[in-house]
C-alpha cells in the first residue's frame, strides 16, 4: 500500500488559514491503513483546525468528510456537492489522490495534507517500511523474493558491496544488508544456485526514467478519463 505522513500541523494551518471555507477530505484506503489520511484522521484534523481557528480568532468554515479512494472516479459522485461548496479542499490522500481530485474539480484549490512517503508494508501495528520502488521490471524471482533495488541502499544487482558488515548495511547498523537477506533466504530454500545467474544491467526506461507511466487495458476501457488522463 501507499504510505503517507501528515505534514506538520503548523504547515497545514499556514496553507488553509487564508480560505473562507475548507473541506478536510479523507482517503479511506491506503493512507487510512497507516493512520495518516483516512476519513477518521480527516475528522480529527478537521476538529484540530476548528480549535486552532477559534484560538487564533480566524473565521473559517471547516467541514470534514472523505471517500474510499480519491484516485477513482466512481467514489466522487456522492461528495461532488460538498467539494464544490468549499473554497479549498485539504486532501488527505497520497499525491495521486490530490492530483486526481484537482483534475476532477479544476476550478477548486486542492491542498495536500500529507507527504507521500513510499510503497510499503505493515511490519507491526504502527510500523511501516518500504518494499517497492515501482521500477517496472521485477526481478524478485531471482533474488529469493527480496528486492535489491529498494532494500539495498546502493540498489546493487549482483551481490553486496564492501560495506556489508555482519548482516548490516554500512549506512546504518539498523538497516539489514539486502544481499545478506537474499543469501540467507536462498540458502534456506536450497536455491543458492540462483546467485550464479548474472542479472544484466537494469533497463531503467520502465521506471521513472522513461517519464510518467501509463497502462491501458483495452478490454476494460469505457472512456470517462480525466482531461489530464487523455493528455498523458
Amino acid at each position: 500500500m501507499i504510505v503517507g505522513k501528515q505534514k506538520p500541523f503548523e504547515q497545514i494551518w499556514d496553507m488553509v488559514k487564508a480560505y473562507g471555507s475548507i473541506l478536510v477530505f479523507g482517503c479511506n484506503t491506503c493512507v487510512a491503513v497507516c493512520h495518516e489520511g483516512g476519513n477518521k484522521e480527516a475528522q480529527i484534523l478537521g476538529s484540530l483546525l476548528r480549535l486552532k481557528a477559534k484560538q487564533e480568532g480566524v473565521t473559517i468554515e471547516i467541514q470534514d468528510g472523505g471517500i474510499e479512494r480519491q484516485c477513482e472516479h466512481e467514489y466522487f459522485k456522492s461528495v461532488a456537492e460538498d467539494i464544490r461548496k468549499a473554497d479549498a479542499v485539504l486532501s488527505m490522500a497520497c499525491g495521486a489522490g490530490v492530483q486526481f481530485l484537482g483534475e476532477k474539480f479544476p476550478e477548486k484549490t486542492v491542498l495536500p495534507a500529507l507527504n507521500t512517503t513510499f510503497i510499503g508494508v505493515v511490519d507491526a501495528p504502527g510500523v511501516f517500511s518500504e518494499r517497492c520502488m515501482m521500477c517496472g521490471d521485477c526481478i524478485l524471482h531471482l533474488t529469493g523474493g527480496i528486492c535489491p533495488i529498494i532494500r539495498c541502499s546502493k540498489s546493487l544487482m549482483n551481490g553486496p558491496c564492501g560495506g556489508s558488515n555482519k548482516g548490516s548495511c554500512e549506512i546504518n547498523s539498523e538497516v539489514p544488508c539486502a544481499w545478506q537477506l537474499i543469501y540467507d533466504r536462498l540458502e534456506g530454500q536450497g536455491r543458492l544456485d540462483l546467485l550464479d545467474a548474472q542479472i544484466p544491467v537494469k533497463n531503467w526506461s520502465h521506471s521513472r526514467d522513461g517519464g510518467p507511466r501509463k497502462q491501458v487495458r483495452e478490454d476494460m476501457k469505457t472512456g470517462n478519463e480525466t482531461a489530464a488522463g487523455k493528455a498523458a
Binding site: K40, Q43, I44, S47, L48, R50, L51
Partner: peptide, 10 residues
C-alpha cells in the same frame, strides 16, 4: 476515540 475528546473541547 480521540475525536470524542476533540468534539468535547470544541
Amino acid at each position: 476515540d480521540p475525536y470524542y475528546v476533540l468534539r468535547a473541547l470544541e
